[in-house]
Amino acid sequence: MSDAKKAAGWTPEQPMVSIKDLHKSFGDLEVLKGISLDVMKGECICIIGPSGSGKSTLIRCVNALNDIQKGSILVEGQEVNDPDLDKLELRKKVGMVFQQYNLFPHKTAIENIMMAPITVLKQDKEDVAKHAKSLIRKVRLEGKEDSYPGELSGGQQQRVAIARALAMTPDVMLFDEVTAALDPETVKEVLVTIQELAEEGMTCILVTHEMGFAKEVADHIYFTDRGVIVEHGPPKTFFKKAKDPRTKEFLSQIL
């Protein structure tokens, strides 16, 4: 743990990500209307809900891709809603994977993985290369190191994107509907990768429509609708004993 993290006075017993009364608007449109949730170290939570309910906005706020109007997000004790936020410090702790992969198309798979540790963290190139190779193995893309993103399938690109985020050795991973753009066959290979990560103890926050996956992997499920958390609970009780009519309706449409 770096000195900066210690200085924030955070200990692993406290929530790794702590969101309190989060409000977020785009112009006059209030997208998040007071969201609160905690994620402990090693936990994997899934956020589900109809489109437009603010799920993606919520996790984009966690690594400051969206600014916040009101409320607080603490990541290992670091306040994200702070005009003097040290974004680099935050983004070293938080990795993110996007729906559209967003790889750098002019760099090969291995270069995509190596770029940020070299330019941002100024790590030694040889160490980074070693780490990148082990990450390539981890996401099962041996032999694809020197392929460009345009030469890879969607599922392969998404696994490169996961490896790219992991190369920064984050403490929390955000997954924003990472399988939504994939073919049904390739969804599984990406989900397996995420599942392995979660099992290894990586703290994960997922926005997903994969209910089966959520049921299997998540420690806790949050259902959002129109900017609020309607209902939440561990998967066992959540899927069987949903109380709120909105949750029931949503689940009946999806399951």
């Binding site: 690594n63 891709l65 974004k87 680099l88 983004r91 070293k92 938080v94 990795g95 993110m96 996007f98 559209q100 967003n102 790889l103 750098f104 198309p105 002019h106 770029m115 940020a116 330019t119 941002v120 963290l121 994107a161 790219r164 985020a165 920064m168």
Partner: peptide, 25 residues
């Protein structure tokens, strides 16, 4: 914009994302 966002989520400053991602593309 999403490619630039990916760079900033990896900790790139605006200048770094311009040099390493935006300008080459």
């Amino acid at each position: 914009e999403s490619t630039v966002e990916a760079a900033s989520s990896l900790g790139y400053t605006r200048l770094q994302s311009y040099i390493y991602v935006v300008f080459p593309l």
